[in-house]
């Protein structure tokens, strides 16, 4: 976004060269860019706070599951069930179920 000062501003001795002049210039001419910046930052914060990742404390690792499954099925890796976990339905499935019920 191009920020160009008006001739009047530039030659006004009270404003020219001052910080206020620069700020006014930005506010007058670059407000769409500022608005876009605020909206972008707001979207990022909103996604982190209430998006699908919000509330989850830890991550996970993407693995070569086809290979791991093959090793489990052949007995090279164990299929022993772990302790200390609980199931959580994924958000997609919940949404899907809600959509089905509403039909």
């Amino acid at each position: 976004m191009c920020a160009r000062a008006t001739t009047t501003d530039r030659h006004d001795p009270k404003i020219a060269g001052s910080r206020w002049w620069r700020l006014r210039r930005v506010l007058h001419h670059d407000w769409p860019a500022i608005l876009l910046l605020i909206l972008t930052l707001g979207s990022i914060v909103g996604y982190l706070e209430i998006g699908p990742g919000a509330g989850s404390r830890g991550g996970y690792r993407v693995i070569d599951f086809a290979r791991v499954r093959r090793l489990m099925d052949s007995g090279q890796l164990s299929t022993q069930e772990a302790r200390w976990y609980h199931r959580t339905e994924a958000a997609e499935e919940e949404n899907h179920s809600v959509a089905q019920r509403s039909k």
């Binding site: 989850s56 404390r57 830890g58 991550g59 772990a82 302790r83 200390w84 976990y85 609980h86 199931r87 959580t88 339905e89 994924a90 997609e92 499935e93």
Partner: peptide, 12 residues
């Protein structure tokens, strides 16, 4: 799809 939450360590 069913996610699981591991409760073993603080990573969760």
């Amino acid at each position: 799809m069913t996610d699981v939450t591991c409760e073993l360590c603080p990573r969760g």
